[in-house]
Every structure is written in structure tokens, then in C-alpha cells.
Simulated assay, not measured.
Amino acid sequence: MSAPVNTFKEALQKGQTVIGCWLDLRSGYAAEIIGYAGFDWLLIDGEHAPFDVTITDAQIQALLNSGSHPVVRVPVGETWMIKQMLDSGAQSILVPMVESADQARQLVRDCRYPPNGDRGVGYALARASRFGTVENYGATADREICLLVQVENRKGLAALDEILTIEGIDGVFVGPADLAADMGHIGNMSHPEVQKTIMDTLRKIDAAGMPAGILTSDEKMIRDSLKAGARFVATAVDIELLLSSARDSASKWKNEVS
């Protein structure tokens, strides 16, 4: 028996476009609910949400039978963090603030077993191998891991050409909020200069034959990103969905009785 097929990676390799949602609510129960909403993939946000290993592990578990593929964003590209997420059963990892080709190369090694990488060999005790029941896991795991790197400032953009040539990088995600801030337009991703940079970057990634990704709930930006070649696109955030729906309900019925 081999490592489970990574359906998210497989879809990207086939040139398909997949639609996702960000998970920032600190709840496996909430993750499971969103998992049945029909998104192709869900991003467990370990960078900005108050997640620890235990909660992230619970969300991965909650999504196992949902049909939505879990992608885990680690807080920072540290080997030990990536190792824990992979052993917990995550097959797709997004690393924020990638600023150099050397950093990207080390991330590839973090996701691979020796002799091609630095991932610790402890899979017999981990969910990744179904607790040792996937007998051929160690020999087959590397090919099913999907490594996505996040380019979100001017340093990252300067290194992008070289990053795009690195074997083992499976996609490049453009971080619009941090990029806008680094360009001097914090909180204003719609600034024309920022939008031009984002779309030019997506086109460059796509032209290099690499899947490009982005997060935005702005409909125009979603359409523009898809036209520019983005292929893994997150269109919503669970917190925003909950707050928006709650506000609409409260406003509607308060207006009815006022």
C-alpha cells in the first residue's frame, strides 16, 4: 500500500483550477462544517489564527472525509513545524514569507525523507501512515507532498525567477495584504500599483508552468486573478462568512421590528 494520493496536487498537475476557503475559526467542528460546503480545498491558517498543533491536528482529522483537501499554512518555514504537520497527516503545506531561493530549497528538503531531504523518519507512529498500516509509506510519501511557497513582499518578488526553477516547489501563492503593505499601501490591496504587481506576478508564475494562488473575497479581483492564470484561489474566509451572515440576519430582523 502506498501513501494516499494527494488529490489537490494531482488537480494542479493536471492544470485544473481549484477553489478554496480560509479556515481561521479555532474549531475542528467548524472546519468539518465548511468541509461539506463544496470547496475543493481549505486552508488551515496556522500563521494568523490562534492555532496550536493540537487544534491543527483536530482540523486535519475533521476534514478527512469531507471531500475538501486540507492545506496547512505553518506560522513560519521551520523544519520542526513542517515535520509535525506532515506527520499529523497534512499532505499540502503553505509556507509564508519566502524571500529567497535558498530558503525555498530548504523547504523542499523539509518535506522530503532522507537521502533527499531532512524530514524525520517517524511515520510508523503517525496519522500520515495511518499509524503504520500504510506499509510502503516511507518510500512513496515524497511524491504526494505538495509544497506551496508564499511570495508576499519585494524581496520575494526579486527572488521569484529563481524560485520558479526549483524542483519540488509545487505552487507559488501571492500574498496580497503583505505585498500591499510592503509597497506602502497597507490595507489597500485595490491600489492600482498593487493590483498591477499582483496580476503581473500571477502571469509570470503561470507562464513558468507553475500553479499560482491567491486569497481574495473581492469578486473583481477573483475574476482578474483567474484571467491572469491563478489556479488555486481562495474566495472566502470562514470568519468573514460567519460575521457577514450574522450581521445580515441581525439587521434584517431588527429593521422588521423597528
Rank of each mutant, 00 (worst) to 15 (best):
A3E: 10
N6K: 09
F8W: 10
F8N: 04
K9F: 03
V18Y: 04
G20P: 00
C21M: 11
C21R: 02
G28M: 03
Y29P: 00
I33P: 00
G35V: 06
D40M: 07
W41S: 02
D45K: 01
H48N: 15
P50F: 12
F51W: 04
D52R: 00
D52C: 10
T56G: 03
T56S: 05
Q59G: 00
L64D: 08
P75H: 04
V76E: 14
E78F: 03
M81S: 03
D87L: 09
A90V: 07
Q91W: 00
P96F: 05
M97T: 06
E99C: 11
A101S: 14
Q103C: 08
R105F: 12
R109F: 06
C111P: 03
C111I: 09
R112G: 05
Y113H: 10
L125H: 10
L125F: 13
R130G: 08
Y137S: 05
A139K: 10
D142M: 10
R143G: 03
R143E: 15
V151A: 01
E152A: 02
N153I: 05
R154V: 12
K155I: 05
G156V: 04
L157M: 12
T165W: 04
G168C: 11
I169L: 07
I169G: 00
D170F: 04
V172K: 00
V172E: 01
F173Q: 02
A177D: 08
D178V: 06
L179V: 07
A181I: 11
G184N: 12
H185M: 11
G187I: 13
N188C: 09
M189T: 12
D200W: 07
K204R: 15
K204N: 12
I205K: 03
A207K: 15
P211D: 12
A212Y: 09
G213R: 02
L215A: 13
T216G: 15
M221L: 15
D224Q: 14
K227I: 13
G229W: 06
A230G: 12
V233F: 06
A236E: 06
I239S: 09
I239L: 11
L241K: 07
L243G: 03
A246R: 14
A246M: 14
R247N: 09
S251N: 09
K252N: 12
N255C: 07
V257E: 10
